[in-house]
């Protein structure tokens, strides 16, 4: 007796992966003006995997719902997800401020309840904060099994088998639905959004709610004091002989 999947895919809007982030003048965060934003690459992989699960077996997936926690502009990444083939979406409008991962996980837990999702597929981390917390915290809050850093996902009945990338090799884990899976880079190559789907996506539902309306307090607990670039690497020196070289590294305390 198999359960139909109601997949939730949380997606985050981040500074494009190909762009080098710069610290802002006030040293309170990164420069956001005039910078290109895109869907977080790991979230893109999660969207792709949800679509492939459906394409691989039509009877497996009942719905795919995308969620983004962010400002109004996060609608862009939801549109991207919809254009690729996601059915419906919700923006949790929290304004422009960065929300801590625990708050995000609490918001998602509420939405999982509302949407009656039984499978949450999300990026292992967002490339801006690199926290790698949200999936794990969400699993903790819901009390569901989790498989992180997925490189392969197979579903058979209620059983989900995930191949994980770990140091020095692969690990295969198995759990029963409902479940959380976070995606790694090699899981798949995300598709392009086709024009017919981009046009269709404009008519797809995009709800907006607030954290308040979900009853989640997102007040930050951590205060960022200062953001700074790592010190620039100093210029190297050219040495004439091996003896000079040895003297130099001794001087630096490396030998």
């Amino acid at each position: 007796m198999s359960t139909k999947l109601r997949i939730m895919v949380p997606v985050k809007r981040v500074v494009d992966a190909a762009i080098r982030p710069r610290v802002n003048k006030a040293q309170t965060g990164i420069e956001t003006q005039g910078v290109k934003y895109s869907i977080n690459p790991f979230c893109d992989i999660a969207v792709e995997e949800a679509l492939r699960l459906r394409e691989g077996n039509k009877d497996l997936v009942e719905s795919i719902h995308a969620v983004s926690v962010g400002g109004k502009k996060s609608q862009e990444v939801l549109r991207t997800a919809l254009a690729k083939g996601v059915d419906t979406s919700t923006l949790v409008d929290v304004g422009e401020k960065e929300v801590e991962t625990l708050s995000v996980a609490k918001v998602l837990a509420k939405l999982v309840e509302q949407q009656k999702s039984n499978f949450v597929l999300l990026g292992k981390q967002a490339i801006d904060s690199d926290a790698n917390h949200t999936g794990q915290m969400l699993a903790g809050l819901l009390g569901w099994p989790q498989a992180t850093n997925a490189a392969k996902i197979e579903i058979s009945g209620d059983e989900v088998t995930v191949t994980r990338e770990i140091d020095g090799g692969e690990e295969v884990v198995k759990a029963k639905l409902p479940m959380i899976v976070t995606t790694d880079l090699r899981l798949n190559e995300p598709r392009y959004a086709s024009l017919p789907n981009i046009m269709k996506a404009k008519k797809k539902p995009l709800d907006t709610v607030t954290a308040d309306s979900l009853g989640v307090d997102i007040t930050p607990r951590v205060e960022i004091l200062k953001v700074a670039e790592p010190p620039a690497r100093g210029a190297g020196v050219t040495v004439e002989t091996t003896d000079d070289f040895i003297a130099k590294i001794k001087e630096k305390g490396a030998l």
Binding site: A17, T80, Y192, A193, L195, I198, M199
Partner: peptide, 29 residues
């Protein structure tokens, strides 16, 4: 751009198309 591309689709000038969603897709195209 999306208005232009929609017009091309509707008028049957193009049969299919994709739009890059991020810098990586731009580079790949």
């Amino acid at each position: 751009l999306s208005g232009f591309l929609e017009a091309l689709m509707e008028e049957g000038i193009i049969t299919d198309g994709v739009l890059a969603q991020d810098e990586t897709q731009i580079a790949n195209l």
